[in-house]
Simulated assay, not measured.
Amino acid sequence: MARMIGAKAIFVALTALFVSSSAALTAPAAALSMRTGAVTSQPIGHYEFCQSNRSECAAGQRDPGAAKVTAFGWKTIREINAAVNRDIAPMTDKELFGTDEHWTYPDGAGDCEDFVLLKRRKLIEQGFAPADLLITVVRKPDGEGHAVLTLRTTQGDFILDNLENDVRHWTETPYRYLKRQASFHPGRWVSIENGDAVMVSSVGK
């Protein structure tokens, strides 16, 4: 009887190990893309940007679904990310405009939102769909707010960041994801429901 109980215990332990390992293997696949929720508040800086650039925030944007990016497309994405990071000097809105928030296309200098706007425009000029290029608000590990550009692809969501020249999958970044532009309307924003899931897959990397 003792042997049977011991064998059963080993079987249960191995089964539990297999289940937990399987969950760990499937978790990244489930988080390939951010899971968006309800419409939420639009950042004031983006609202004011839309007032000055109404055509960029108007309804009627077509959402063709996540892009299937070719090798040439990835080369273009990486080149634009690195070039904007190189050519634009990081400066705060307070330094440039004397205000806390002023979203605009940068002219030689800008803050994180300005980097995002310029990268988005350059990628649209290269043929990428606006619905796949979404301004995204995140929180850095130190609690500071930050903006990045999310690229939707059939391989998942990837991040263009002025603090990083590499284009990384969103789960390979250290951020907590809060909200982003809606793929169905460039003037609307939606919450990100699994924004903390990124922290799990980033541990130990």
Rank of each mutant, 00 (worst) to 15 (best):
M1G: 14
R3E: 15
M4P: 05
I5S: 01
A9Y: 02
S20P: 00
A24T: 02
T26C: 13
A27D: 04
P28T: 01
P28A: 12
A29V: 04
V39M: 11
Q42N: 03
H46D: 06
E48K: 12
E48D: 15
N53K: 04
S55G: 02
E56G: 05
E56T: 03
C57E: 09
A58P: 02
G60P: 02
Q61N: 00
R62P: 00
G65L: 02
A66P: 15
A67L: 13
A71E: 11
A71P: 00
A71V: 06
R78Y: 14
E79Y: 11
E79N: 15
V84I: 13
N85C: 09
N85K: 05
R86P: 00
D87E: 14
A89F: 02
P90H: 13
K94A: 09
K94P: 07
K94V: 10
G98E: 04
D100E: 12
D100K: 12
Y105E: 10
D107Q: 01
A109G: 07
D111A: 15
C112F: 07
E113N: 08
F115H: 15
L118M: 02
K122G: 05
I124E: 05
E125R: 07
F128P: 07
F128G: 02
L133W: 09
P141H: 02
V148H: 04
V148M: 07
L149P: 11
R152S: 06
T154K: 05
T154H: 03
Q155F: 10
I159D: 02
D161H: 03
L163M: 14
E164S: 09
V167R: 10
R168S: 13
T173K: 03
T173Y: 04
Y175G: 09
Y177E: 08
Y177P: 14
Y177A: 13
L178W: 01
F184I: 01
G187H: 11
R188A: 12
S191T: 05
I192N: 13
V200N: 15
G204I: 08
